[in-house]
Amino acid sequence: MRLTAHFSLAELTASNKAAALRIDNTPPADVLRRLQGTAEMLERIRSTVGRPIVVTSGYRCPPLNRAVGGVTSSDHVTGQAADIVAPAFGTPYQLARLLAPLVSTLGIGQLILEGVKGKQWVHVSTRIPDKLFNRVITITDAGAQVGIQVLS
């Protein structure tokens, strides 16, 4: 099922971990509506970047979210978030730096540059966090910082 011109439901629900653990990661109807909004946000990001966006993690049902070590309040569980990279554009840091000043324009509720356990990606969500200083942050193994910080 195609959600937008460049993003499908299969792409936003794909999970090697779910397949390995035989977890059914099919979203319920209310989550499917939110995934539509997430795909639309991803389309705006793709248009801004001018290159393909790769979704490394999208919707996670609660059992899958637990299996990957996600927090219980994760926007992935509600279909409102995606972890992305854009290798044809640049590094996750470069992507986050481009997107940070455009969060309101692009409908990004929260933007997180993540660099943990040797991996880097950009987390985008349609939900604006309760504490606005958490809207654009960097998370590393050392913790969270406001804004987009250089990853080592």
Rank of each mutant, 00 (worst) to 15 (best):
Ser125Ile: 07
Gly70Asp: 02
Leu64Gln: 01
Ala18Gln: 01
Arg44Asp: 04
Leu12Thr: 02
Leu102Phe: 01
Val150Met: 12
Asp130Gln: 02
Thr78Ile: 09
Arg66Gly: 10
Thr126Met: 05
Gly70Cys: 01
Gln94Phe: 11
Val146Lys: 15
His6Met: 07
Ile108Arg: 00
His6Leu: 08
Leu113Cys: 13
Ala29Pro: 13
Ala86Pro: 06
Arg2Glu: 15
Val103Arg: 05
Gly58Thr: 11
Ala10Glu: 15
Val150Glu: 12
Ile108Val: 10
Phe133Asn: 11
Pro92Leu: 01
Val71Gln: 10
Ala82Thr: 11
His6Trp: 09
Met1Asn: 09
Ala96Glu: 05
Leu32Phe: 12
Leu106Trp: 11
Leu21Cys: 15
Ala19Arg: 14
Ala14Pro: 06
Ser104Phe: 08
Gln94Tyr: 12
Leu102Cys: 01
Cys61Arg: 10
Pro27Ala: 09
Ala82Leu: 08
Ala88Glu: 06
Val85Cys: 07
Ala82Lys: 02
Leu95Glu: 03
Ile128Gln: 15
Val136Leu: 08
Phe89His: 08
Ile23Met: 12
Ala81Asp: 02
Ala67Gly: 14
Leu151Ala: 07
Pro52Ile: 09
His123Thr: 06
Thr38Asn: 14
Ser15Met: 02
Glu114Ser: 11
Leu111Lys: 05
Gly58Cys: 08
Leu102Tyr: 03
Glu11Ala: 14
Arg66Asn: 14
Pro52Gly: 08
Val103Cys: 09
Thr138Gln: 04
Val124Cys: 03
Ile112Phe: 02
Phe133Leu: 10
Ser104Gln: 08
Asp30Val: 15
Ala86His: 05
Gly70Thr: 04
Ala100Ser: 08
Arg2Tyr: 13
Leu98Gln: 06
Val85Tyr: 10
Ile128His: 15
Pro101Cys: 02
Pro27Glu: 04
Gly79Ser: 14
Ala81Lys: 04
Thr126Asp: 08
Val31Gln: 07
Gln94Thr: 10
